[in-house]
């Protein structure tokens, strides 16, 4: 039992940055923009969040919670900025979405590592936040809730970003399923021409969904620097997580509610070796499990041909009103 709880805790912590990246990408793809630059936006959020917290400490002397909130805000803005470049290129200039997304991934990686090292030089060797700020990203003590046997440790023993990610997922689910605007957004993603004819401003929806989605990816990146590496910039800290998040979008079949448990499964698959080692099975086999799972889901989906759980139809295609 103890081992199971520990495993679940580790899976949740490993799955949360993936979940955030996935949620951002789901929102983006719902508008018909296939932004492959998740990795880049996560990198941008990662370094900007850390830099935001660090400068808040250096310039204003804010440590702990205020610095953590600054990190949240700046990382969101940085991710959104990356997505804005993407949206401008693909929506306004109608550049190829795949190429633009890949470019953004490469750009963001360089952006993160460049400013990470620059900041390290500036800080004299390496950049790290104060322990008060690190403490703001440690697991929460929710008083009596955390004391409940089993459930307390299973549900109420995480840092606040985990709960934020869950709230974002639930809100996104409600938004897409229960609101008029959510329906409009889905219409834009499925068939922008129809939505346009129905009086929906396609470009506004595309811009907003992409930019907000990018911001959420940025928060996912910030999670990596502030929680996983506890407030230290590590070269290539995101490496691969953004691509895993893109795979997870497919695994979650473009549904934010499903992303919740799919993120947990991915996190669990990443942690499996450490908690359930099978003698003789090398680590590399474990490392590829999330990808194998994605391929299996793709195959299953192509067999089932479900209309409901599929990629938005116009995803990857630019919309140009005059082009019929």
């Amino acid at each position: 039992m103890d081992r199971f709880i520990n495993f679940m805790n580790a899976a949740v912590l490993a799955g949360t940055p993936l979940l955030l990246g996935t949620l951002g990408e789901i929102l983006t793809e719902k508008s018909g923009n296939l932004n492959l630059g998740v990795e880049g936006m996560m990198f941008m959020g990662a370094i900007s969040g850390l830099a935001g917290a660090w400068f808040a400490e250096q310039w204003f002397g804010w440590t702990g919670v205020p610095a953590a909130l600054i990190a949240l805000l700046i990382s969101f803005l940085a991710g959104a900025f990356g997505a804005l470049i993407y949206a401008f290129l693909t929506v306004t200039l109608r550049a190829n979405q795949n190429v633009t997304g890949l470019t953004l991934a490469i750009f963001g990686t360089g952006f993160g590592n460049f400013f990470g090292e620059l900041l390290g030089k500036r800080a004299g060797g390496f950049v790290t936040v104060t322990s008060a700020t690190k403490q703001a990203f440690a697991k929460l003590d929710l008083g009596p809730l955390s004391q409940i046997p089993v459930l307390g440790r299973l549900l109420f023993s995480y840092n606040w970003l985990v709960y934020l990610a869950v709230i974002i997922a639930i809100m996104m689910h409600l938004f897409l399923r229960k609101t008029r605007r959510g329906l409009n957004l889905r219409a834009v993603g499925e068939s922008p021409a129809t939505a346009d004819a129905g009086g929906i401003n396609v470009n506004v929806y595309k811009y907003l969904a992409t930019v907000v989605g990018g911001g959420i990816c940025g928060i996912g990146g910030m999670y990596m620097t502030m929680v996983t590496t506890s407030g230290v910039w590590v070269h290539n800290t995101i490496l691969g997580y953004g691509w895993l998040a893109v795979a997870l979008v497919i695994f979650a079949t473009w549904s934010p509610a499903r992303a919740l448990y799919c993120g947990l499964i991915f996190g669990g698959l990443m942690m499996l070796r450490l908690y359930l080692p099978i003698p003789g099975v090398p680590q590399q086999i474990y490392d590829m499990l999330p990808y194998v799972a994605t391929i299996v889901v793709l195959i299953v989906m192509s067999i089932r041909q479900s209309k409901e759980y599929a990629q938005p139809k116009s995803s990857g295609l630019n919309y140009f009103r005059e082009e019929r």
């Binding site: 520990n6 580790a10 990596m224 996983t228 590496t229 590590v234 800290t237 450490l274 908690y275």
Partner: peptide, 15 residues
């Protein structure tokens, strides 16, 4: 790989 090092450390502590 600080991420992995932290995860492995946690797994050892959990045991």
């Amino acid at each position: 790989d600080p991420t992995k090092e932290a995860q492995v450390a946690q797994a050892l502590i959990d045991q």
